[in-house]
């Protein structure tokens, strides 16, 4: 019976309850989810096609797996008597220490702060590179947090581990470009101002092993049995490697190799753990 309702095919699925005709452009995920037995047949596209919604769900689940407790809890530090009754007093609490002790920041907060500050760094280096080295020759100057923002690095990537100066590591090597870390020889300029500081980057020597060579064997010369051993890196190379500055937290995060990306992501049934897409056929929705 016609109630005078005009059906309009619009291009977007309605957000509100109700229904509408939509153009059929392929397998609809919501439909296939309702018909799990047809799933294998209906599956198209690459295994990594995830929608924004699925991505958000994965992120949410990962965040849940990273939690310390199931619910948010706060366990305050018990209040203690700060008198000398049987307790070792460590002396007066300095303002800096008090600030650290009272900080409620999480690691995520620190990381975000650090990255935000390091994002400012390239501009700072560019400015600094036009000037001669701005590192103070006497490193006795205490870093006050207020001065931390000042561009304080040389163009040579010399790192100033200033307190509150998270710019430090940004001059570090990009992933896998070890050979560019060549400033090892430049770095100690400022440091040498203080004569009695030892160089931990002491000379490196290549030495022979202490064990005797094994007895020769007639098969040694057999071209089929010879294996080729890559030559050792030179001393400078090793020194360079050892002198490389630490990477930042994000740079050390292991990557997802291209080969692994090509492989389909394994899916397991949530109920029984067997192979499945969302649920295995047995427990299909």
């Amino acid at each position: 019976m016609d109630f005078g309702v005009l059906e309009v095919a619009n291009s977007k699925a309605p957000a509100a309850p109700g229904w509408a005709y939509v153009p059929d452009t392929g397998v609809n995920a919501s439909v296939t989810a309702l018909q799990p037995r047809k799933r294998a047949r209906n599956q198209t596209g690459t295994p990594h096609d995830t929608t924004a919604k699925q991505d958000a769900k994965i992120l949410r689940e990962l965040a849940a797996l990273d939690r310390e407790n199931h619910k948010d809890v706060s366990i305050p530090v018990p209040i203690r008597h700060r008198d000398n009754a049987g307790r070792i007093s460590h002396g007066k609490v300095t303002p800096g220490v008090r600030k650290i002790l009272q900080s409620q920041k999480t690691f995520a907060n620190h990381l975000v702060d650090y990255e935000a500050l390091s994002a400012l760094k390239p501009a700072a280096t560019a400015a600094a590179s036009s000037q001669p080295s701005s590192i103070p020759s006497t490193p006795t100057v205490r870093a006050a947090p207020a001065t931390a923002a000042a561009p304080h690095l040389t163009s040579k990537g010399t790192r100033s581990h200033k307190k509150k100066d998270p710019n430090a590591v940004v001059a570090s090597t990009p992933l896998r470009r070890v050979s560019t870390v060549s400033h090892a020889t430049n770095t100690p300029q400022a440091i040498k101002a203080d004569p009695d500081i030892p160089m931990l980057d002491a000379p490196i020597t290549l030495c022979q092993g202490s064990s005797p060579d094994p007895a020769p064997h007639p098969g040694d010369k057999d071209p089929l049995l010879i294996s080729r051993i890559p030559g050792m890196p030179s001393q400078e190379e090793i020194e360079k490697l050892l002198a490389a500055p630490p990477l930042s937290y994000t740079e050390t995060t292991g990557s997802w190799t291209a080969e692994d990306r090509r492989k389909p992501v394994r899916q397991f049934c949530e109920v029984c753990g067997y192979w499945g897409r969302v649920r295995c056929m047995r427990y299909g929705a």
């Binding site: 030892p198 160089m199 931990l200 002491a202 000379p203 490196i204 020597t205 290549l206 030495c207 022979q208 092993g209 060579d213 094994p214 007895a215 020769p216 064997h217 098969g219 040694d220 057999d222 049995l225 010879i226 294996s227 080729r228 051993i229 030559g231 050792m232 090793i238 050892l242």
Partner: peptide, 21 residues
């Protein structure tokens, strides 16, 4: 055979990094 040949083919290489004097 393969072991010894393998062994011989490689150079005796090793590194030591001198501790600070």
């Amino acid at each position: 055979t393969s072991i010894t040949a393998f062994y011989h083919a490689k150079q005796r290489i090793s590194i030591a990094i001198m501790a600070p004097t």
